[in-house]
Amino acid sequence: MFSGEQVASLFARCGITHVVTVPDSTLGQWEPAIQKAGIRLVRVCREGEAWAVAAGLYLGGARPLVMIQCTGLFESGDSLRNVLHDWKLPIFSVIGYRSFLNQETLPGDTTLIFTEPTLQAWQIDYRFITEPGQFTVFARHLETCSAEGKAGAVLIAEGKA
């Protein structure tokens, strides 16, 4: 979908200092470029941790971003609720949408049923990115959320499980 360099350049332009992440087969490919851009990767063991680590970073003056797969979004529930809704911290997230572009990879993958309703249930202002031409949508949403101090997310369609 996007190159690591594209994404890393956007993050750097938006002042992102840390990317808190559990990789998947798409997002993980971006890691070398993100690190090359001088942004620190914080590798957590489960995605619920990512929101709390990002909250601590934000409170401490950094500008973190959470980068996880949609399965990790499901795992994130209570931590995400606390950070985004109890504390109203403006944490942006990049969420990989497993197998959306190649639904034969995992026939019957229920992430295709639950991902968007989950984002909506958590009242996350997200943009759904399904093709490379939508990079500007990704960029604009991150830039807007950063400038306005709001939480938000982009849901990135992926082609591999």
Binding site: A52, V53, G60, D78, S79, R81
Partner: peptide, 17 residues
């Protein structure tokens, strides 16, 4: 309010920042 168990993670974020 917290998400139970996440104080260690929030503390890590603060420690890094």
């Amino acid at each position: 309010p917290s998400s139970m168990g996440q104080a260690t993670s929030l503390g890590l974020g603060l420690a890094l920042a």
